[in-house]
Amino acid sequence: MRHFTITDITNKEEFNCRENEYILYAMQRSGRKCIPVGCKGGGCGVCRISIISGTPDFGPMSKLHVTEEEKNSGYALACRIKPKSNMSFECAPKPKASTNQEASTNLQLKEVSQ
């Protein structure tokens, strides 16, 4: 089985991940704590990251936290990706829900005013 090195570029922490393993699970197995741990099922969005380099396999994750567009620009939930190469990332927690709500309301207002 292949193993890959996963690097958190913010604090230069590295851990080893098996090719069939979700990177959040590998982080926990290695005793690291660089990514916050939530539901571990792609639902809550707590472990959202931005992939800087490397390629993963994506499992199902909530569109509420990673839209298709965000996925294409490198965002992912660490509990639902398995590495296909060495990877580096930084944590990318979503802004607070209320801020999102505000942004979405502002957007709607903007659309209405146009």
């Binding site: 539901c39 571990k40 099922g41 639902g43 909530s62």
Partner: peptide
Amino acid sequence: FFDPSGNR
């Protein structure tokens, strides 16, 4: 505990 979609 969590279901595989993250529902508790």
